[in-house]
């Protein structure tokens, strides 16, 4: 089976014959996909806010859309980083802001209110994915008050700390005497 990474192996180094199971979990892959989606949406909002506001019938809100774009980009970078959980929760919060902004445009005189309803539906779907991914990627740490295994007897010195220090001192003195004599 062809593996792209084999092309860059140094001559003679082992090459991949068959790829095995990964440490990467499905929720990590979902987080990654949402991170890239966030980046893409953020770039569109930042660079083409007028297209967005025209589609939604919300002309005049370009500055808000740009600000949301920056927020999406930051949340995207965070979701793609080691701290993906913080990024995903930032996205969940952002989904709330998106929904609130869209609802403010859902007025009877907006000719594009159908698009807003569609956008709200999408935001709802994405929010569910964000929430699910944020829940599933919670850091797994034992609670602060969990009982921990302690090692009061594991000094690493079978005859005790003092005996080890004394023996080391003798050895150092012996070695130093050997060097200076």
């Amino acid at each position: 089976m062809f593996h792209f990474s084999n092309i860059v192996r140094s001559k003679g180094d082992p090459t991949i014959v068959e790829s095995g199971p990964s440490l990467k979990r499905p929720q990590d892959q979902l987080a990654r996909a949402l991170g890239w989606f966030s980046l893409g949406l953020g770039v569109v909002e930042l660079l083409a806010p007028r297209r967005v506001t025209e589609t939604l019938g919300m002309e005049g809100s370009e500055t808000l859309v740009r600000a949301f774009g920056v927020r999406e980009i930051v949340a995207g970078i965070m979701s793609l980083s080691v701290e993906k959980n913080a990024g995903l929760w930032a996205r969940v919060g952002g989904d709330g802001l998106d929904a609130a902004a869209l609802l403010s445009g859902l007025t009877s005189d907006n000719p594009k209110k159908g698009n807003i309803a569609l956008a709200l539906l999408m935001v709802g779907g994405i929010a569910m994915l964000d929430y699910r991914a944020a829940q599933d990627t919670k850091p797994r740490r034992p609670p602060r008050d969990a009982k921990r295994k302690l090692y009061p007897g594991r000094s690493g010195f079978p005859k005790g700390v003092k005996a080890a220090k004394d023996r080391a001192k003798d050895m150092i003195q012996h070695a130093t005497a050997g060097v200076t004599s």
Partner: peptide
């Protein structure tokens, strides 16, 4: 990133 796999690879020589 965060993707380590248990692969079958050729033996070293």
């Amino acid at each position: 990133k965060e993707d380590i796999r248990c692969d079958t690879v050729t033996d070293p020589e």
